[in-house]
Structures are given as structure tokens and as C-alpha cells.
């Protein structure tokens, strides 16, 4: 173990015990290739067993360990301590979501909004399975990259429109809606467009790019939302049904 150490300021709050949140400061020895997830594990294993946080796969696939780390929502498992370029790390729970305890947030509002856009494929009845859109056909639109979303909620925590407006659907749900609307086989496109074309849908996006800035998968939800806006306008003028 190297002699290098970092100072970790960690957000602590138990709604059942504490009146106000507080920050606890821990000094943690740095090991090689240490990620922020290793930092919170070190605290839990060796310093304070009561620290709560959520994680699962530890390799950036499951999207459970999103936290607000040094001014940005990031995946704790994919954020190297060395990449922060400082020996002081501030770790807070994901913003805009209710806190269960310490660093664990309740993803319920996020998934409630996710449900509102009907996040599943509904094929046209006349199509027979398996229905394929060939990768080289003109029918296929560019959605491959947008499908990489792991629903970690980083974008939701970074979006200031979500922060000021509780009902805004948020970047992740709208990005998901676009991947389905852009699918030529989709049979409930108009219904989906109605869901996202409401006041608290796409129209609250003002191209801040905070979602794109923090997305661990490097998606650009702003682009998906723009595509949805365009389709809402076109649908309004009857360009597609």
C-alpha cells in the first residue's frame, strides 16, 4: 500500500435519526487504480459500518452506484480517484432524488417517469415476428448509441430543469422514448408523442447539455430530445400519423 492518502468528505444523513445532513471526513490510503467505489467500501469496511450506498456490478454496467462526486454526478465504480486530480473528494448522493440514507437515493420518481413514456416495444399488429429492420436500410434510424442507457440516473441528477421542476420527465426517459418513436415498427408512436409532447415533457429541455456532460455512456440525450421536439411539431402539422 502506498503512503499516499486522500481526504474524503462524505454526505451522511439518516432521515429517521438526523434532523440535518452532515459531512463526515475520512482519511483513506490510496491503492493502485482506486475507484470512488473502493473509497466508500474502505470507509464501510474499516471505519464506519453504518455508511449506506448502493452498488452491484462494479464494472459500469448496472447503473446502481451513481453519486455526486466533486461537482458532477458520476458512476462511483468508473471514477478513478487519480482522474479527479485532487486529494480531496466530496461524495454526495445523486441530486434531485429523495435520500433513503447517506449515499443511497430512492430511484422511484425516476422510474415513475420512465413508465410514463411506455418504455417497451409495441409492434404493429400486421407485422409477423421476427420483424427485422436491416442495418443498411433507410428505414433504420440512428438509435444504436442511444440504446446504451443503463438508467443510472446521472443525467437526471445533473439536469437543472428536473431540479426546478418536479414533473419534468428528465433526459433518460425522453431518450428512451426517442429510441422507441424512431423505430418504424412501433405502433403506439402517436400515444408516445402525446406523452412526451406535454408541457412537462420535451419542451422543458433548453439545451443545457448537462446530461450529455455527465453521461457515463457518453450519450447525448439533448439530441434525442431535439428529435422528439421535431416529431411533435411534425405530428402537429400532420406530417406523420
Amino acid at each position: 500500500m502506498s503512503s499516499q492518502e486522500i481526504k474524503a468528505r462524505i454526505f451522511r444523513y439518516d432521515p429517521e435519526q438526523d434532523v440535518e445532513p452532515r459531512f463526515d471526513v475520512y482519511t483513506i490510503p490510496v491503492i493502485k487504480n482506486m475507484a470512488i467505489l473502493d473509497v466508500v467500501f474502505h470507509v464501510q469496511n474499516y471505519i464506519d459500518k453504518s455508511l449506506a450506498f448502493r452498488c452491484s456490478c462494479r464494472i459500469g454496467m448496472c447503473g446502481s452506484c451513481a453519486m455526486y462526486i466533486n461537482g458532477k454526478p458520476r458512476l462511483a465504480c468508473r471514477t478513478q480517484v487519480s482522474s479527479l486530480g485532487t486529494s480531496e473528494v466530496t461524495i454526495m448522493p445523486l441530486p434531485n432524488l429523495p435520500i433513503i440514507r447517506d449515499l443511497a437515493t430512492d430511484m422511484e420518481p425516476f422510474f415513475e417517469k420512465w413508465k410514463k413514456i411506455k418504455p417497451y416495444y409495441v409492434g404493429k399488429p400486421e407485422l409477423k415476428d421476427p420483424v427485422v429492420i436491416r442495418p443498411d436500410s433507410d428505414e433504420r434510424e440512428f438509435i444504436d448509441q442511444m440504446l446504451d442507457c443503463i438508467t443510472c440516473g446521472c443525467c437526471y441528477g445533473a439536469c437543472s430543469m428536473v431540479a426546478t421542476n418536479e414533473d419534468y420527465l428528465g433526459p433518460a426517459a425522453l431518450n428512451r422514448a426517442y429510441t422507441l418513436v424512431a423505430d418504424k415498427r412501433d405502433s403506439i408512436r402517436v400515444e408516445r408523442l402525446k406523452a412526451v409532447g406535454r408541457s412537462y415533457g420535451v419542451w422543458r429541455c433548453h439545451d443545457q447539455f448537462n446530461c450529455a456532460e455527465v453521461c457515463p455512456k457518453n450519450l447525448v440525450p439533448t439530441k434525442s430530445i431535439q428529435q422528439l421536439k421535431k416529431r411533435c411539431v411534425m405530428q402537429k402539422f400532420g406530417v406523420f400519423k
Binding site: 454526505f11 444523513y13 432521515p15 445532513p21 455526486y68 461537482g71 458532477k72 454526478p73 454526495m92 448522493p93 441530486p95 434531485n96 432524488l97 429523495p98 435520500i99 437515493t105 430512492d106 445533473a158 437543472s160 431540479a163 443545457q208 447539455f209 448537462n210 456532460e213 455527465v214
Partner: peptide, 11 residues
Amino acid sequence: RFKTHSQVWSA
């Protein structure tokens, strides 16, 4: 329920 509203200021 308590939430934080920390923003991304570095972008």
C-alpha cells in the same frame, strides 16, 4: 423527503 439539488457548474 430530503433531496439535494447540487448542480453541474463545470460545464
